[in-house]
Design a protein around this nucleic acid. Structure first.
Length: 258
DNA sequence: ATGGTCGCGCAGCGA
């Protein structure tokens, strides 16, 4: 199974590129973040024409997540599972695609260390761990992927000194992410590639993409049984090039059958 | 050059 995650920074603005990318890469499952669409405006027919069922959890101007699948879609959960404090934002979507439980996330940015939104981010990650307990089983095949807005360690930023004191790298954010990982997840990019400076996001400003000034904040985690079947994984930085790109590149992983 | 770019939506905020 080939599964991908991509923060598209507005699906309305990015639809032509997403359609072209689907045709080129042919993932079985594609998770999208920052669709910035209402559910009514989600372009289901465009994806249906390419052979994908889709489910979307959106609100409009901000946020919004989707799962596209050509392996079927069932057992959908919008946002946090019942029993957890609901999220006012559309940032989380869970669905079964074939035999894999797929959870996609758009973790809050945090804005600044200590900001009210930063505490919301930390609480959101704590809730995500409890959500996983409710919706999935780490002894089965599970993928948790998306824009985590956390760089897991200093290899994942262009300059740790320049980033120090900001969001995405603070000890509390990394610790909150580790709690999620502790549920039973493997960072499949790091399972295969250990070198630094493998980025998935580059600020639009100041030519940062071309200067290789980015962060790895788009992550794909697999449960241990699935991670053992990883064939390959890559960040498709070609998709960050050219006309009207998202500021994020897609992350793609291929797993062999069980 | 003390900014730099997007998207949304029509000012200025969020990323």
């Amino acid at each position: 199974m080939r599964i991908a995650t991509w923060n598209v920074n507005s699906l309305k603005a990015r639809l032509p590129r997403v359609e072209q990318w689907l045709a080129e890469v042919s993932p079985d499952v594609l998770c999208l973040q920052e669709t910035k669409l209402t559910d009514d405006a989600f372009p289901s027919m465009a994806f249906s024409a390419l052979g994908y069922e889709a489910v979307h959890h959106g609100e409009g101007r901000w946020n919004g997540v989707a799962i596209l699948s050509r392996l079927g879609i069932s057992d959908v959960v919008d946002g946090f599972a019942p029993g957890l404090a609901p999220d006012g934002d559309a940032r989380l979507l869970t669905a079964s695609c074939g035999d894999v439980r797929v959870v996609t996330v758009y973790v809050p940015n945090g804005r600044a260390v200590g900001h009210e939104h930063y505490h919301y981010k930390l609480d959101w990650l704590a809730r995500l761990r409890r959500h996983l307990d409710q919706v999935a089983d780490p002894s089965g095949d599970v993928v948790v992927c998306g824009d985590f807005n956390v760089a897991p360690d200093d290899r994942d930023v262009w300059d740790p000194a320049a980033c120090h004191g900001g969001t995405h790298v603070s000890a509390a954010e990394r610790s909150a992410l580790e709690e999620v990982v502790g549920w039973g997840l493997v960072d499949v990019l790091r399972q295969r590639h250990q070198e630094p400076q493998l980025f998935s996001w580059w600020d639009y400003r100041a030519g940062n993409f071309h200067r290789h000034l980015g962060m790895r904040i788009d992550l794909l985690y697999a449960s241990a049984p699935l991670a053992r079947r990883l064939s390959w994984v890559l960040i498709d930085r070609n998709a960050r090039k050219g006309k009207l790109p998202s500021d994020h590149a897609p992350l793609v992983a291929e797993f062999s059958p069980a």
